[in-house]
Amino acid sequence: MAESNREFVSLESATASRAGAGGRPCQGLYHRPAGGEPTAAVIATHYNVDFSEHYLAPYLAERGYGFLGWNTRYRGNEAYFLLEHALIDIGAGVTWLRRRGVETVVLLGNSGGGSLMAAYQSQAVEPNIRPGYGLTVPDAALTLPPADLYVSLNAHPGRPEVLTAWLDPAVATETDPLSVVPELDMFAPEHGPPYPPEFVDRYRAAQRARNERISAWCLDELGRLEAAGVRDRTFELYRVWADLRFADLTLDPSDREPGCYLGDPKRANFGPSGIGRSNTLRTWLSMWSLDHSDCQAGPHLARITVPSLVVQSRADQGVFPSDGQALYDALAAEDKTLEADVPGDHYLLAPEGARDEVADLLAGWLGERAG
């Protein structure tokens, strides 16, 4: 791989200053071609995963593009996420790129970051997000600088959607990770796989119902706490690796292998790791709630009119063909492209050369629009 330069970038945000220990809330790495300042650059951000050393950064820098792997104040701090402040932090990164001389800013929405970057562009062109419970939208979130291009790469359709699709509806008691409703247990051999259509329909409805129950409890609990003069609290969420598609390859068929990102779904489901495992009440409503969250891509994509590209690899175990198609269909851009026949898993670790192939694809598409 050709040589590229990396530069540490650390910025304050309009709603978060430097911490007492010295750290600034927004941090990342700017990757650029050796010996030059690119006029087109990508910015990639996730809700909580560290994207500073994103796997595509050196590949795109090698092809002549800048790449800002950017982190908001919520890197590794998902339990306290609020969308309005995350968007302000992304805006700090976009502004930094503009001041650096970048003429074409490209939002890269990868994995969970797809809906986040869609929300950013949507808010920048038409402020629309709702504030966190009991809060107001800061002024800085009403004047975000828009980007010029949007790219979705193996992106989930939104935080509420992906969590609900993975939620185990067989949890009988939210405080007991071992409690099971037998008739909704995807791991009971008598149910499948393959899972019959009537079980799938009942299961999906129960997943939505679980999300809605948790949201209703959060609102009730916030009211109870407020009456006592308390602002918020944390709670744990159990069993979040139970998408039927992890076990049944006839549902949303693709080239994927059985399993989830952590391997065996049952083992992962009863283990301690996973999305949304720890939340404040306000964070649940801001990020995960089907009824209250603005972290759902569809409405935001309907406000995105800049040229857009959706890339979906064939062997992803957690983002499925229907997801890529839905994102493409939701985009309002007249110039939009769907590339759904790309080999590779979620992180393009396999097959060999998958990352180079996607980097070539992105560079070719960007070259026609950004030079």
Results as ranks from 00 to 15, higher is better:
Glu62His: 12
Ser322Glu: 06
Leu163Gln: 13
Arg159Asn: 11
Phe51His: 14
Leu60Glu: 06
Tyr195Thr: 04
Asn77Cys: 06
Arg99Ala: 10
Asn5Lys: 05
Asp148Ser: 09
Leu281Tyr: 08
Val358Glu: 02
Tyr328Pro: 03
Leu281Arg: 05
Met287His: 14
Leu281Gly: 08
Leu219Thr: 03
Tyr328Arg: 00
Met117Asn: 13
Leu11Gln: 11
Tyr238Ile: 06
Pro299Lys: 02
Ala40Ser: 15
Asp252Asn: 12
His31Leu: 02
Val306Glu: 01
Pro299Tyr: 00
Ala124Met: 09
Tyr347Cys: 10
Val9Tyr: 12
Val200Gly: 03
Glu226Ala: 15
Ala14Val: 03
Thr104Gln: 05
Ala332Tyr: 00
Thr15Asp: 05
Glu357Tyr: 11
Leu225Gly: 10
Gly112His: 13
Arg99Gly: 15
Leu167Cys: 15
Glu226His: 08
Phe235Trp: 07
Pro253His: 04
Gly91Phe: 05
Arg208Val: 12
Ala315Lys: 08
Phe235Tyr: 05
Gln207Trp: 09
Tyr150Lys: 03
Ser115Met: 09
Asp248Tyr: 01
Phe67Ala: 05
Asp356Gln: 13
Tyr30Trp: 12
Tyr261Glu: 07
Glu84Thr: 01
Ile43Pro: 10
Gly344Ile: 02
Thr283Pro: 05
Thr164Tyr: 11
Pro33Met: 09
His85Met: 00
Asp89Phe: 08
Met186Ala: 04
Arg99Leu: 12
Asp232Val: 11
Ala332Cys: 02
Pro196Met: 09
Pro127Ile: 04
Ala242Met: 13
Ala247Met: 11
Leu362Asp: 00
Arg32Val: 04
Gly364Phe: 10
Pro343Glu: 08
Arg208Cys: 10
Thr95Trp: 03
Pro321Gln: 01
Asp316Cys: 01
Glu3Asp: 11
Leu244His: 06
Phe270Asn: 02
Ala170Tyr: 10
Gly69His: 07
Trp217Cys: 01
Ala2His: 12
Pro182His: 12
Arg63Ser: 02
Leu237Gln: 15
Ala21Cys: 10
Gly93Leu: 03
Leu219Ala: 09
Asn5Val: 10
Thr45Asn: 07
Leu222Trp: 01
Ser115Val: 13
Arg267Asn: 04
Ala242Asn: 07
Ala155Leu: 09
Met287Phe: 02
Ser322Arg: 00
Arg6Lys: 12
Leu83Lys: 06
Val106Gly: 07
Asn5Ser: 10
Val180Ser: 10
Thr173Phe: 13
Ala14Thr: 06
Thr15Lys: 01
Asp243Leu: 15
Ile129Asp: 12
Gln207Phe: 12
Ala242Ser: 15
Asp201Tyr: 14
Ser4Glu: 13
Leu163Met: 15
Gly276Cys: 07
Gly36Tyr: 01
Leu142Phe: 04
Tyr203Asp: 02
Asp291Ser: 08
Tyr47Thr: 15
Gly114Tyr: 02
Pro272Thr: 00
Arg204His: 05
Arg224Cys: 07
Ser322Phe: 02
